[in-house]
Design a protein around this nucleic acid. Structure first.
Length: 613
RNA sequence: GGGGCGGUAGUUCAGCUCGGUUAGAACGCCGGCCUGUCACGUCGGAGGUCGCGGGUUCGAUCCCCGUCCGCCCCGCCA
């Protein structure tokens, strides 16, 4: 399970000054021979006479025995060693006496009788224990990340990350992709996330931006004819953090020429299949299911559904019309929706528990939560507004059995979907419906544009370089200036050649076929309210490139951190990143960000606002 | 910008409702004993700015206000 190829190389080189093998490699074939080992003292069991030390390196653990009869000097010295001392030893590998084997250790049939012991370095008493089982707060773990990273679980996570990246690189290489680096010091772009800025000393008052993604460069590589590009690349977005969001994160980024959506999808499915097979020895079924954006919204209430369980949203818009329940009728009459969930078996919930659910729904934005228990008929404060016939039809549509609890939300469509999708997840967890495994799916046919009510304009749902579907190009071009400021205009109907890949309810990647025609790209900027002048200043180099024989092209980027998080079963990407930042984007290990000396600021022509000094 | 939870021994936590004697436990740490342990055992011991500042009070870990830090979430994240 550990890096055997590397271990072999270590042995092949004839060992080193400090060791012949890694700890976990010591086995029956070494019995009778003397070997050198080095590592950390994991645990010491001092019996006064015999002393046992578990010697640890990244490969694992082997038991060292200090016996006064075998060798008095190291035995004496071993009294003084403590947890996490770095030691080097030479000794004889022996089979453990019968009955003392440790079946929990791969090296549990042997032990090393120590002839010579060197303490290479001592360790202060640790702020927390290295054992996986010993819990330590995350802030302490981050401050002493080098200790945290000595833990087996975290080491495994990073080993799996390494293996996954290696597997992906091998795959892309086999498929004819070239890994090409793109600049980290690049240009700020108006759309999208907030940029991290880097002041330019040589160009006073000017700034680079760290890339949010290599988007424009990889498109230009396509124009340059590289045809198949990929990169494992750091990206930066200066937005607030979450368990699955860090300000710097890694993408597996790719772009291909002469492709349509299905080509990209096939390539990614092949890659994931190989990676899961190589790294987890798990076979995943392809092709992945595909769901349109609108169907996903209708059935799950969001565009990244966790499809490991059902509990789908059910629309009762049509049935509600026959009721006299004002809350539902008002929602429908003002263009909203009434949708619901069947919480199987939850009719046993008390009024208080239902109130708690209601409060939860309200915290997600609902005005309230209506409910009907199926319990000796229908039990609910709202049954009186519904004819019996309609109640039965509702129950039928829900496949409601005795003991079920139906939960309803009526509001604007966006709120209904938002609230119910969150309730669905919450109930899925509570009812333990979520099965183990990896459920991939594609979400396709996204709208090209999204209405931004605050700015009264359309913004790109994916990004401004995403191609509309061929059938909708005409609609895009037909849009005149009043359509640009009307959320219900023809622009809202234009679909994009965009696709997201979802795993277990997490968006792990997204991409699109790009616009390769200059006229469409210019039109796209126009509908986004980006003037010709601004487009030229911000993206002129792309527009220029598009007029010199740009091939049709498209690509995708996968969020490596999220993918690995899901592969190792972690609950935060912080557990698959060697040096993560806190929610305030602070590095507790290094202390970044930090103030700089005035000279540095002067060189950069930067003056700080008096109120922060 | 907003909502929620947390901060007490080196660590993980209890104590806080209902303010009052010496602030406890486990693990870790230190010392003694221990030759087959592997979360060794056993006997003994040390260890506290109750995050920080202010207020109320005769008296604050406990109540109030502010603030800092960490986590979860909303907004934000093309």
């Amino acid at each position: 399970m550990f890096q055997n190829t590397t271990c072999k190389r270590l042995v092949k080189l004839g060992g080193f000054m400090f060791r012949d093998k890694w700890c976990n490699e010591v086995n029956d074939s070494d019995i009778g021979s003397f070997i050198k080992l080095s590592g950390w003292v994991f645990r010491r069991r001092d019996h006064g006479g015999l002393i046992f030390v578990d010697l640890r390196d990244r490969s694992g653990i082997v038991q060292a025995v200090f016996s006064p009869e075998f060798s008095p000097e190291p035995h004496e010295l071993a009294h003084s060693i403590r947890s996490e001392f770095v030691i080097s030893l030479m000794g004889e590998v022996r089979r453990r006496p019968e009955g003392t084997e440790n079946l929990n250790l791969p090296t549990g049939t042997v032990e090393v009788y120590v002839k010579e012991l060197t303490i290479l370095n001592e360790s202060s008493v640790l702020p927390f224990m290295i054992e996986d089982a010993a819990e330590a707060s995350e802030s302490l773990r981050f401050k002493y990340r080098y200790l945290d990273l000595r833990r087996h679980d975290l080491q495994q996570n990073l080993i799996i990350r390494h293996k996954a990246v290696k597997s992906a690189r091998d795959y892309f290489d086999e498929q004819g992709f070239l890994e090409i680096e793109t600049p980290m010091l690049t240009k700020s772009t108006p759309e999208g996330a907030r940029d991290f800025l880097v002041p330019s000393r040589l160009n006073p008052g000017y700034f680079y931006a760290l890339p949010q993604s290599p988007q424009l460069f990889k498109q230009i590589l396509m124009v340059a004819g590289f045809d198949r590009y990929f990169q494992v690349v750091k990206c930066f977005r200066d937005e607030d953090l979450r368990a699955d969001r860090q300000p710097e994160f890694t993408q597996i980024d790719l772009e291909m020429s002469f492709v349509e959506k299905i080509d990209i999808i096939t390539v990614i499915e092949g890659m994931l299949q190989k990676v899961f097979n190589d790294v987890l020895e798990t076979s995943i079924q392809t092709p992945f299911p595909m769901l349109s954006y609108s169907e996903s919204m209708e059935r799950f209430g969001n565009d990244k559904p966790d499809t490991r369980f059902g509990l789908e949203l059910i629309s009762i818009d049509d049935l509600v019309r026959h009721s006299s329940f004002k809350v539902f009728l008002d929602a429908i009459h003002s263009g909203g929706r009434v949708k619901a969930l069947n919480a199987k078996g939850l009719a046993s919930l008390s009024r208080k528990e239902i109130d708690a659910l209601t409060a939860e729904a309200q915290s997600f934005g609902a005005k309230g939560l209506a409910w009907i228990k199926v319990k000796n008929g229908f039990e609910s404060p709202i049954t009186k507004f519904f004819p019996n016939e309609i109640l039965n039809k509702i129950a039928e549509r829900f496949d409601a059995q005795e003991g079920d609890l139906m939960l309803f939300v009526a509001d604007k469509e966006k709120i209904v979907n938002d609230v119910l999708s969150r309730m669905r997840l919450e109930l899925g967890k509570r009812l333990k419906l979520i099965k183990e495994g990896f459920d991939f799916l594609w979400i396709t046919d996204f709208p090209l544009l999204e209405w931004d009510a605050e700015e009264s304009r359309f913004t790109a749902m994916h990004h401004p370089f995403t191609s509309p579907v061929d059938d909708d190009i005409e609609s895009l071009f037909s849009a005149k200036s009043p359509d640009l400021t009307n959320p219900a205009s023809i622009l809202s109907t234009v679909r994009a050649k965009a696709y997201d890949i979802v795993l277990n309810g997490y968006e792990i990647g997204g991409g699109s076929i790009r616009i390769h025609r200059r006229d469409i790209q210019k039109k796209m900027f126009e509908v986004l309210g980006i003037s010709d002048e601004e487009a030229n200043v911000k993206f002129g180099f792309l527009l220029d490139a598009l007029q010199y024989g740009a091939p049709p092209h498209g690509g995708i980027a996968l969020g490596l951190d999220r993918l690995i998080m899901l592969m190792v079963g972690a609950s935060s990407i912080r557990d698959v990143i060697a040096f993560p930042k806190t929610q305030k984007a602070y590095c507790l290990l290094s202390g970044a960000p930090s103030p700089v000396v005035p000279k540095q600021l002067r060189e950069l022509n930067i003056k700080l606002d008096a109120k922060i000094l």
